[in-house]
């Protein structure tokens, strides 16, 4: 079977967009089966078409069992909580992994809390930069690097809050 890979950067808040892209690719006959370091791997099969969905949730045995029984094939899990699923377009019809906006909002909220926790850990671990500050080049470089990451996180938080508000409007 022919395979191909594509490089694409996806930020956490864009998982719905990512899933739509994978679904579009699948409609063209390229079916996503693996993600690694920014690369999406596809398998070619013009006879099939899948709907892709990504969930963010703490999983368990019951979790995967539920999804499997509901017709969703588990593809991969990233960072322990991002779960990629797919289902045959013809069998799943209009069903998706979420059936109400309130639960989509909860998903983005879980994501926000997850990144806030990482953010706080990072700030605590980098506090040394300030404590051992001696104004040399290395200190300055470290500070710039950390500042860039802080800005990135703030951007992420704003985007996630916006996703929550978008879902809330539909409730």
């Amino acid at each position: 079977m022919k395979t191909m890979k594509k490089f694409k950067l996806t930020l956490a808040y864009d998982i719905e967009k990512e899933a739509n892209w994978l679904t579009e690719m699948s409609a063209k006959g390229f079916h996503f089966y693996k993600y690694r370091w920014g690369f999406y791997y596809f398998e070619e099969d013009p006879s099939k078409s899948y709907i892709y969905q990504t969930d963010f949730q703490e999983s368990s045995e019951e979790y995967f069992e539920l999804y499997t029984e509901a017709g969703w094939e588990h593809m991969q899990t990233e960072l322990g909580q991002y779960h990629y699923f797919r289902a045959d377009k013809n069998t799943i019809g209009d069903e998706r992994i979420y059936s109400d906006p309130a639960s989509i909002k909860s998903m983005y909220k879980r994501m926000l809390l997850f990144y806030v926790a990482i953010f706080i850990c990072m700030l605590v671990s980098q506090i040394g930069i300030v404590l051992t500050w001696n104004g040399n080049l290395l200190s300055k470089f470290a500070l710039i690097l950390v500042s860039a990451v802080v800005i990135l996180y703030i951007f992420l938080f704003i985007k996630l809050l916006r996703q929550m508000r978008r879902a809330e409007k539909l409730i």
Binding site: D55, Q57, Y63, E95, I97, Y98, S99, D100
Partner: peptide, 13 residues
């Protein structure tokens, strides 16, 4: 009414 698995699991949690 068909509850979706993600919605259901969130509610169960």
């Amino acid at each position: 009414i068909v509850l979706a698995p993600g919605t259901l699991y969130g509610v169960l949690t």
